[in-house]
Computed example of a mutant assay.
Amino acid sequence: MPDVTTTSAEAASDTVTHRGEAAFFDVDNTLMKGASLFHVARKMYQKKAFTMGDAAGFAWKQAKFIFRGENLNDVHSVQDSAQKLAAGISTDFVRQLGEEVYDEMIVSKIWPGTRALTQEHLRSGRQVWLVTATPVEVASVIADRLALTGALGTVAEIEDGLYTGKLVGEILHGPAKARAVQALAIEQGLDLGRCWAYSDSYNDIPLLTAVGNPVAINPDTRLRAHARDHNWPIYDFRSGRRAATLGLRAATGVGVVYGLWKGIAMVRRR
């Protein structure tokens, strides 16, 4: 039987081979179930940073996000609302909030399959970055907790340690993700033709096509069709695909509304 043991020299050689390579992961519905910003909003409500009406609006957008996938208008609506609500809040508060949100809400919603992919890339000597419209403070907490290389996220304007309610640049969404990754590649000396990108959303086609190895994870209908047409790998870590549950979606519409009401009521009691 041949000896298949990998020596330290061989391992080091393999790591050198993958220098200049990286894997980029979207967060919402790719790394975790649902929208991370919803959980930030929920935690902010618990800390009395905004009202029940604001919380209900976030909850409804979260339900739509889970059932129909990412929608550009919803992303901008949630982000705009969050920025306005964050005006005057300290950076220290948000940093602590991000830690609590991860421990109490996000960690249990991370797809084990996606996390395994991040770890495989790290073991292969590649950098692993999160690329998300989520505020960079929250994205960085997720990256740190998963021992990833780092995170690219939406950046909020700060003055004297307080958020102003404005953005620095643009929401990191759609083509903006591709531009951010291209800038990072120049900074880090990455060869994007040898890099990987993972997303669930058709809106991330610019990011996926910016690298040599695009992969669809839990894809929405349009991304699934695009991935098949272009022979991209498709991973689906959901317990049941939406394509097979159209009838269930209609049947559970009332259940979703009831669940939202119960969830908000539970938050109110807390």
Rank of each mutant, 00 (worst) to 15 (best):
M1P: 11
E10L: 11
A11N: 01
D14C: 11
H18F: 06
H18K: 08
G20T: 03
A23W: 07
D26S: 02
T30D: 09
L31S: 08
M32Y: 01
V40L: 15
K43E: 14
Q46F: 14
F50E: 05
A55C: 13
A59S: 09
Q62E: 09
K64Y: 11
L72H: 10
S77M: 04
S81P: 01
G88L: 08
I89C: 07
S90D: 09
R95Y: 15
L97F: 04
G98I: 04
E99T: 03
E100P: 00
V101D: 06
I110Y: 03
T118Y: 08
H121K: 05
A133K: 01
T149W: 07
E159Q: 07
Y163G: 02
G174F: 08
A180D: 05
A185E: 02
I186S: 07
E187I: 01
C195K: 03
N203A: 15
L207A: 04
L208H: 02
P214N: 07
D220Q: 06
D220A: 06
W232S: 00
A243G: 15
A243W: 06
A244C: 13
T245D: 12
T245V: 10
G247K: 08
L248H: 10
R249Y: 12
R249C: 14
R249K: 12
G255Q: 06
Y258S: 14
Y258V: 15
L260G: 12
W261H: 07
R268H: 07
R269H: 04
